[in-house]
Design a protein around this nucleic acid. Sequence first.
DNA 1: CTACGTAATCTAGCGTTGATAGATTTTCAA
DNA 2: TTGAAAATCTATCAACGCTAGATTACGTAG
Lengths: 171, 171
Amino acid sequence: MAARLIAEREGWSAVTIRRLADEIEYSQPVIYSHFENKEAILEAVAVEGFREFTSKMEEAAARGSTDRNALENVATAYLDFAFGQTALYEAMFALPTGLRFASPAETKPELRAAFRSLAAVIRPFGAEVELTTETFWASLHGLVELERSGRNRPSARAERVALVVRWVLGG
Amino acid sequence: MAARLIAEREGWSAVTIRRLADEIEYSQPVIYSHFENKEAILEAVAVEGFREFTSKMEEAAARGSTDRNALENVATAYLDFAFGQTALYEAMFALPTGLRFASPAETKPELRAAFRSLAAVIRPFGAEVELTTETFWASLHGLVELERSGRNRPSARAERVALVVRWVLGG
DNA sequence: CTACGTAATCTAGCGTTGATAGATTTTCAA
DNA sequence: TTGAAAATCTATCAACGCTAGATTACGTAG
C-alpha cells in the first residue's frame, strides 16, 4: 500500500487522498471506488500491520529456548516492532479506526491472531491467561506510547521491558 | 476553556477554530491573538489536565490507610480520571502536543508534578523509583488506551488494575 | 471637547483537506 | 461495428487552519 510508504517516510499527516492519487497516478475518485473513505484506508494498513505483528511475535517466541526466554523475546520484539515502523504501529493503535476486539463475533481474525500470539507466551505463567495477556499487552503498549510522546527516558527502554517481564514471571 | 467543554461533549474533532470563535462570540482572528495556533490550545488544555490529574492522584494517595492501599487507590483513581473525562485525557496523552518530559530543563512543572504524584506511591516498594514509576504509569496508560480503543474487555477493568498493583507490590 | 495613536476586532480570502456529481473515455461481448 | 457497462476524469463542494488588511473602539494629549 502506497499510504504506508508515505506515512513511514513523512508521517501520516502527509498521507492525503490527493497525494495517494498522485502516487498511484490516478485521480482522486478512483481511490473512493476501492475504499469507502480515508478511515478505510487506515484500517487496511492496520490489518496488514496486525498480520505482520503476529508473525513477528510468533518468530520471537519460537526463538526462545525456555518459556521465560520466549516471554523476554516477545516483549523485546514488541517494542522493536513498534519503534521499527512507527507509522504502521500508529495505524494499528493510535489513529482512529473502527477496529475493535470488543464483540467476539465481529472482531477481525487478524486481531484475534495477534492476541493469541501474545497469549501463547503468557500461558505458561499463571492461570488467568486472558486477563494477564490483556494487562501484559497494555503494559507494553503503554511503554511504547509514553516513550514515543517523550514521557519516558528512551535510554531506559530495555530496563522497563525487563521489569514488565519480571512482573509477569513473579505475578 | 471552551475547547474542553466542546471536546468533552462532542469529541475533539468538533473543536474547530470557527466553532470556538462562535462559542466565545468573537471572530476567528481573536483566537490567534491569544494562542499561536490550534496546537497551543490543546497544549493549554493538556496542562490544565495535568494539574487536575496531580491533585486527583494526591487525594487518592492521601485516602490510603497503608502504602499498599495508597497504591491501589491511585491506580483506581488513574483509570477513573481517564474515563471520567476522556477528552481531557486525550489532550494530555493522545493528541499531538509539544509537551515532553524528555529534557529536564524544558519540561513543564505540571508534568513533573504529575510524575511525582505517581512516584510518591511507588517509592515504598523497591529501590528503582523512577524506573518503576515509568513502567507503572505506562501500564496504567496502556490499560486506558486498549480499553478505550475496544481492545480490552471493559468488564475486567478492575481486575486488570488489581493485577498491575500486585505486580508492583511483588516486583 | 476634540484629535490622534494604539489596541482590539472584523471582513474577506488563501491554500488545503476529504468527498462527490456528472461528463467522458475505455473495454469488450453481441 | 455497435452499444451497454465499467473505469476514469474534470470540476466542484463545504469545511478546515490560518492570515492580510480594513475598520472600529478607546484612552490620552492638547
